[in-house]
Design a protein around this nucleic acid. Structure first.
Lengths: 200, 200
DNA sequence: TGCAACCGAATGAACGTTCGATTGATGAAT
DNA sequence: ATTCATCAATCGAACGTTCATTCGGTTGCA
């Protein structure tokens, strides 16, 4: 393909997009560099010009996707939102992001369950997508006595775990998903998480 | 190694055990047949005598582990258990199984997030470990108006999702886990799942 | 004697990565 | 205004390695 139809940024974007697409369909190891090059119309040599190895490419792609997720989930929170409003809003965004970006979901699922992640977790720090901000947000609810007085990581596991599990079910099973389902689910989490001593 | 130190069943068991161990450490594709043979003291040719391909081996291993899980989680339920007792008991068993069998957890995580699973899901039917019985169990709670009157799959996603996410956090983060944590978590799920119109 | 279980060196395909050659933009020198 | 040197960007054939799988031969029970 003609060299000048893409500049550097476009090439990298094309490589990222092709990699996500191929990984969703063929999995991590069913996605050779040769196919990424073919699919993205970027020569293998050029990919290696930007990423020293396949591992580096995957790692960079992960950081790219995590940034997208982080930007997305806390977007649209208004000043007049109550804590409960935000609790609902962020969770809905979380699910919506993964539903709208199924290839990112596939990539994250594979990434986080691979020894890849385990071996670099010290460097990654911020585990399952955007959790640091989520941890802070849920800790705020605990401090304000709105949520149960438990270890924040238990609440995070519930909040995120239900979202991931739901998206997985929608994707792999025949769970058709409606706005009503979403409200029922976030209701389950809220009812489970709130501090009944002080609340509602 | 001397042929007669293992019979067929022992060989297959050794192959399964080695495969699980290697996959936990090196991942699905960092586990070549040659290493499985080496680690299990069973010749490559012999492995291929029992399993036509690596895929068949993985598939058989999956079914084997799923059966173990199914046997485990509904074990120990007494006749005098209330529905709530069983709800708690099964969930605790679920978490305990994965904590005691970390290699199975790793294997399942990778298996379920691989295109492997996606491509064979019709044949696998019973998705994330032991869910069919879990579905029936939660449906019973809905029918008896103990649990919220929602799509059972939403409750399954919550019930299982929190368990998986918790085990993942324990495994990959520094979430040390106590009996008290376990009780707090199952409390969160129960509070979220119960039908407040009719209950407690 | 026959047959299933067993063995592991050999095979061929697929993969990550390298590297020498080519292109095109930039700016200094003329 | 034109030439030229430089260097980053680009390319893909070729290399060496690794892997799943095969197959011809061996073992030992019935």
């Amino acid at each position: 393909m003609n060299v000048r139809l893409m500049n550097s940024n476009e090439k990298i974007a094309a490589v990222f997009a092709s990699t996500l697409k191929l990984i969703q369909t063929n999995g991590f190891h069913g996605t050779p560099m040769s196919k990424i090059a073919q699919e993205s119309d970027v020569a293998i040599g050029t990919i290696y010009h930007y990423f020293p190895s396949k591992d580096d490419l995957i790692f960079a792609l992960f950081k790219h996707c995590r940034a997208l997720l982080n930007d997305y989930i806390f977007d649209g929170i208004k000043d007049d939102f109550s804590y409960k409003d935000s609790f609902f809003h962020v969770w809905r965004n979380f699910v919506k992001f993964y539903l709208e970006n199924g290839h990112v979901f596939s990539f994250f699922e594979q990434f986080f369950s691979s020894p890849y992640y385990e071996k670099n977790k010290a460097e990654i720090q911020e585990p399952v997508g955007g959790q640091n901000k989520v941890v802070d947000f849920l800790q705020e609810g605990i401090d304000r006595k709105i949520l149960k007085q438990v270890n924040v990581h238990l609440l995070v596991a519930s909040y995120i775990g239900v979202a991931l599990s739901t998206v997985h079910s929608i994707k792999f099973k025949d769970l058709s998903f409606s706005e009503r389902n979403m409200e029922e689910l976030i209701g389950i989490i809220w009812d489970g998480a709130i501090n009944r001593e002080k609340n509602n």
